[in-house]
């Protein structure tokens, strides 16, 4: 149980189910160290954020209704300690609000994993 408690919680947000499924597949081997949640669109993300707390939120930028910038802005307000990553469709988009990392699609699993490890490895309120 202590192992479960130590697991980092990551929320992935995108409006494309295929993209989420791909991420889930490729990060499946990290299931033992990370507890990953996948939210389809900004509204689902807000529901998840209301129910749980996360160490990192990775969000797409352009989404219908509530876009990535709005989601990450809410994250920043509600949970200032949560790391925020924008996974943007194109690098020419201006990103509203500040984020810890800006990743541009297509982004390889290696890069994504390394980014997450770096963000999660930074000591904040947990152990080395």
């Amino acid at each position: 149980m202590s192992d479960e408690l130590k697991k980092k919680r990551i929320l992935f947000v995108d409006d494309d189910p295929s993209l989420l499924a791909g991420l889930q597949n490729v990060l499946h081997r990290d299931r033992k160290r990370w507890d990953m949640t996948f939210a389809l669109g900004g509204e689902a993300a807000l529901e998840e954020l209301g129910a749980n707390s996360f160490d990192v939120v990775v969000s797409d930028m352009r989404m219908p209704v509530i876009d990535g910038a709005a989601v990450l802005a809410i994250v920043k307000r509600r949970a200032p300690h949560t790391r925020r990553v924008m996974l943007s469709g194109s690098d020419c988009e201006s990103v509203a609000g500040d984020v810890d990392e800006l990743l541009v699609k297509p982004c390889s699993a290696v890069t994504l994993r390394a980014t997450l490890e770096r963000l999660l490895g930074k000591p904040r309120d947990n152990e080395p």
């Binding site: 494309d16 295929s18 993209l19 791909g22 194109s90 988009e93 699609k105 297509p106 390889s108």
Partner: peptide
């Protein structure tokens, strides 16, 4: 171009992830 890049980059992302998987 920006929109089209987004449209193309999203599938490229999950194609890469799926093949990697």
């Amino acid at each position: 171009a920006a929109g089209v890049a987004h449209e193309i980059n999203t599938p490229i992302q999950f194609i890469g992830d799926s093949v990697q998987f």
